[in-house]
Design a protein around this nucleic acid. Structure first.
Length: 422
RNA sequence: GGAGGUGUGGGUGAGUGGUUGAAAUCACCAGUUUCGAAAACUGGCAUACCCGAAAGGGUAUCGGAGGUUCGAAUCCUCCCACCUCCGCCA
């Protein structure tokens, strides 16, 4: 959500943001509704002021007749006010809906483009391995080594189901441990947050109302989150933080659920696109400064890169174009790790910042000691590591000609062996 | 699942229909005092929106949403959270 005052004064920026993000949003309509809202609010407030004033008079009036006259007058005022209130309620509903749909302003550096095809590579690390044999896909490799069972996964869990086994399970847990060990010394607080989360948190982070169809909803009105960002951001919902404690850095683990509603035919085989997976997410709240946001955004991105470098997985970083940005995102990098069997990079990380878009919705503020004012914090997040998707890159890049898989050096102490062979 | 209770400002907590945005107190901030500090004393101390150049004025907010009333923290309905007891269960 943006400040309505900002929108009033910068409607051209909002209009431009919608264009760049390829969203249809009618800012003129919002401003019209806003004007109606203000006019009506002023009228109602004036009537209420009158009512409050007469209310005091009524208590002071000793003469019963005079009192009855005042009460009768106020009865009329009340009726008129009720009519106006009804109209205002309708206007407010429409105003709120529009406000929730206002896109955040993308950064100047965000390239033009409609979809991920137009994202721009900003750097790459490592050389894709030159195989002396035809590399197998993660599906073949993992089935051969009994690291995954898709048939029973589907029997148990339905479409896109999978069950990790043996070192498939061990390697998943290994990377979670590895990430926690790497990032905790960098000032991140490790957390395990709920996946089952209340609606407010989804509205606050911007996943609702627009993304309803991508979420699993329970009969209790709660939703299953597709990222720990939701539960972690909601941790500080409606709170006032101290400026000294910023930035707050967290790495949260949880199980993520995604309906993948818009991608039924896509990536139906393997572990690339699944309904249920596990992820460690970096989430940061910082003071309301663009410079801080930018600095931390780069930092979060590099944190993830360092992890991939430690795993010796080739990757590149792409700057997402306008059309590939979410409603609230100002700027986003995707990190994509190399997938040998497909001869392409596949998205494993997504790093973005939001300015106060989320914190305004979630009401997360801090007190600035200098001027004593309350300000909405800025928020950012980036994947640290997601499994099983990252296992694709690991097993494919570390495969040997005989179908065995070498365990990445940094994971050996967690997995308990150097080579997966079965 | 059943029965009962509670929800007031940063904390504790008073307030059961009328100048109550809300007593008191603690915390906090500023000042007086002091070499400095403590203590004491004095003063200040909510947020959002609207009007206004400002000073200032107005409206709303006592878990949330509705309702009754000229008027609601106070009465009614629904919802949420927490607590206690019983039942059930890991």
């Amino acid at each position: 959500m943006l400040d309505i005052k900002f929108i009033r004064e910068n409607s051209d920026l909002v209009k431009e943001a919608a264009r760049k993000k390829h969203l249809s949003f009618d800012v003129v309509k919002l401003l019209e509704v806003d004007k109606e809202r203000l006019t009506l609010m002023t009228e109602i407030e004036q009537m209420r002021a009158k009512q409050n004033q007469v209310s005091v008079e009524i208590t002071k009036t000793q003469d019963q007749n005079a009192k009855m006259v005042l009460i009768y007058d106020m009865k009329l005022v009340k009726e008129e006010m009720q009519k106006k209130d009804e109209v205002l309620a309708k206007i407010m509903k429409s105003w709120r809906e529009l406000m929730l749909a206002v896109p955040n302003i993308p950064d100047m550096s965000v390239p033009e483009g409609g979809s991920d095809k137009e994202n721009v590579e900003v750097r790459s690390w490592g050389q894709p391995r030159q195989f002396t044999f035809e590399p197998k896909s993660h599906i073949d490799l993992m089935i051969k080594n009994d690291l995954v069972d898709f048939d029973r996964g589907i029997k148990v869990g339905g479409f896109r189901g999978y069950i990790l086994k043996n070192e498939g399970a061990r390697m998943s847990m290994a990377v979670w441990q590895f990430v926690m060990d790497e990032l905790t010394p960098k000032g991140f607080t490790p957390m395990i947050v709920p996946s089952l989360v209340r609606k407010e948190a989804f509205l606050g982070t911007g996943y609702l109302p627009q993304g309803e169809e991508d979420l699993y909803k329970t009969q209790d009105g709660t939703y299953l989150s597709g990222t720990a960002e939701v539960g972690t951001m909601a941790y500080y919902m409606d709170e006032v933080l101290k400026k000294e404690e910023l930035p707050k850095k967290m790495i949260s683990f949880n199980t993520c659920y995604r309906r993948e509603a818009g991608s039924h035919g896509k990536d139906t085989k393997g572990l690339y696109r699944v309904h249920e997976f596990n992820k460690v997410e970096q989430v940061v709240l910082c003071e309301a400064s663009h410079e801080q946001s930018v600095k931390l955004h780069e930092e979060l991105t590099v944190n993830a890169e360092v992890l991939l470098q430690a795993l010796k997985l080739p990757y590149h970083v792409v700057l997402n174009c306008g059309g590939d940005l979410g409603l609230g995102q100002v700027k986003k990098y995707d990190i994509e790790a190399w997938i040998p069997s497909e001869n392409r990079y596949g998205e494993t990380h997504s790093s973005s910042y939001f300015h106060d878009f989320q914190t305004r919705r979630l009401n997360i503020r801090y007190k600035d000691q200098i001027d004593g004012k309350l300000r909405f914090a800025h928020s950012l997040n980036n994947t640290a590591l997601a499994t099983p998707r990252l296992l694709i890159s690991i097993v494919e890049n570390y495969q040997n000609e005989d179908g065995t898989i070498t365990v990445p050096e940094v994971l050996r102490k967690y997995v308990g062996k150097d080579l997966i062979s079965r």
